[in-house]
Structure formats: C-alpha cells, structure tokens
C-alpha cells in the first residue's frame, strides 16, 4: 500500500488544495508545513496554468497571482522536495495537461517522483485520453487520480474507478471548483454506487465550503477535498500560514465530531 492510500484509509480524511506560488513560494512552503503539522491527510498542490477552464473565480485569481511570480514546473518540484525533507504528508499535483506534455510526460513524472510527489490529478485529462499517462504513472509508481462526475454509476464509471489509483475523486456537483450550490441530495447515492465498484477511498470535492457540508459528506464518503474555501480565507488573512494552520485544525476537529 502506498503512502497516499495508507494515509487516506481508516478515517475521514481531509485533502487541501492550494496553488503553488500564491502569493509566493516561501509562503506556500510555510502553509504546507503548517497544514502538515495539523495532520492534514494530503496536500493537493496546484500547478498554475494560464487557462484553468475547470476552475471557478477563486482559484482563477489564485492562479493569476502565482503566474505573476513566473512559477516554473521546476520551482514546484523544488518546493515539493523541500517539504518532503521534513514531512511525510502525501502530496499530489493538480494541473492541466499542456505544461506536462510540454515537459514530456515521462520526464515530468520522473521529476515529480524525485521530488516526493505521490500522485497526479489532471483536470483536462479524462479517462478516454488517459491510456498513455496511466502506463507511465504505473511504470513509475505514481498515482493517477481521475475525476468522476456526480452521476449514478455506469460501465464507464466502473472502468474509471478501476484505472484510478490512490483515491477516487468524486465531483460534488456540476460546476467549476468553488461554485456555490445546494448540497445535492443525490450525492450520497452517487458515492454509494461508486462503492459497488471499488474499495479505494472515495473523496468528494468541488464546492465543499462549510464545516457542515464537510461533515454531511463524511457521513457517506471517506473524506473531502477543500480548495476555494481556504483560498478565500487566505486572501483575507495577513498571516497566511497561520490562517491555514487554524483552518485545518478547526476543520479536522469539526469533521471528527460524530453527528
């Protein structure tokens, strides 16, 4: 069992997304360290891309701030390495395909691997286009996490959860990241139908924006992925690493309370 799978098993997990380089690399590293100290279960590190079509306004703003720092992929590997020297918390990289292809996929995976990265989430790489990436990830023992739409399972879902490694990333609603929504009543049945096909941990993300929502989702899912919610808090905070520390501390506490 990989570090990522081990970490996400046996308890309700919290995965937190932040953008590498927002507002700068040193702050990002401090945020990561503080979250690790609070025992966040996995850090999803965003690789900023010029045209993040799957992201809502909050992550778009975060991405623009990072791009103004001229963040290169090598800088992100450097950041992950520095974090890995001190912490065992799993790190998955999330981004868009073009910069990865531009570096060449295999080289990218090897560099990420060397930096202690555990997995990849690629927003514009659906299952249909993923065969080459799956082969390369498998070869180098890198998790490749596909996203799943909030639809009841079909043959296609079965194939996706089978191909997905590390965990299953179920999208909570139709929309971009961080979009406001009513808590979909059907989400529970979606998650339950995914479980018919897999024992892998099922994490729910996109628009999880309150402790209550996170707690509700954890009643049937294995955990939540938080992104825009924290980034909005970070935008307002003067001491960003402290803000991230308190955020993870409070949310972990809230998620552990049995309802």
């Amino acid at each position: 069992m990989t570090r990522l799978q081990k970490k996400l098993s046996d308890h309700k997990s919290l995965i937190v997304f932040i953008t590498a380089g927002d507002p700068d690399m040193e702050t990002t590293l401090q945020i990561m360290k503080n979250m690790a100290e609070e025992k966040v279960d996995c850090i999803e590190l965003g690789m900023p891309f010029s045209d993040p079509i799957a992201d809502g306004a909050v992550i778009q703003r975060s991405t623009s701030r990072a791009l103004k720092q001229n963040i290169r992929l090598e800088d992100i590997f450097g950041l992950a390495s520095r974090f890995r020297q001190q912490y065992d918390t799993p790190v998955v990289l999330m981004g868009y395909l073009n910069p990865i292809l531009h570096m060449e996929s295999e080289r990218f995976i090897l560099r990420a691997k060397a930096a202690g990265v555990d997995g990849l989430v690629i927003a514009d790489l659906p299952f249909e286009e993923g065969e080459e990436m799956e082969t390369l990830c498998k070869k180098h023992d890198m998790a490749l996490i596909y996203l799943l739409a909030p639809e009841l399972s079909t043959q296609r879902t079965a194939a996706i959860v089978k191909a997905s490694t590390g965990f299953i990333y179920c999208i909570a609603q139709y929309g971009t990241t961080g979009s406001e929504s009513r808590s979909p009543a059907s989400l529970q049945s979606v998650v339950e139908s995914i479980r018919l096909y897999t024992d892998k941990p099922v994490m729910v993300g996109f628009g999880v924006s309150s402790e209550e929502k996170a707690r509700q989702i954890c009643e049937y899912a294995d955990g939540v992925v938080i992104g825009s919610w924290l980034i909005r808090e970070l935008e307002r905070a003067t001491d960003k690493p402290a803000c991230a520390r308190d955020f993870v501390r409070n949310l972990k506490k809230a998620m552990s309370i049995q309802v």
Partner: peptide
Amino acid sequence: GGQYVPELLMP
C-alpha cells in the same frame, strides 16, 4: 484532435 476536457463535460 481528441477529447481533452474536464470529466463533467464527457457525458
């Protein structure tokens, strides 16, 4: 060509 889109658009 191909279909490089977020999962939500595949259906």
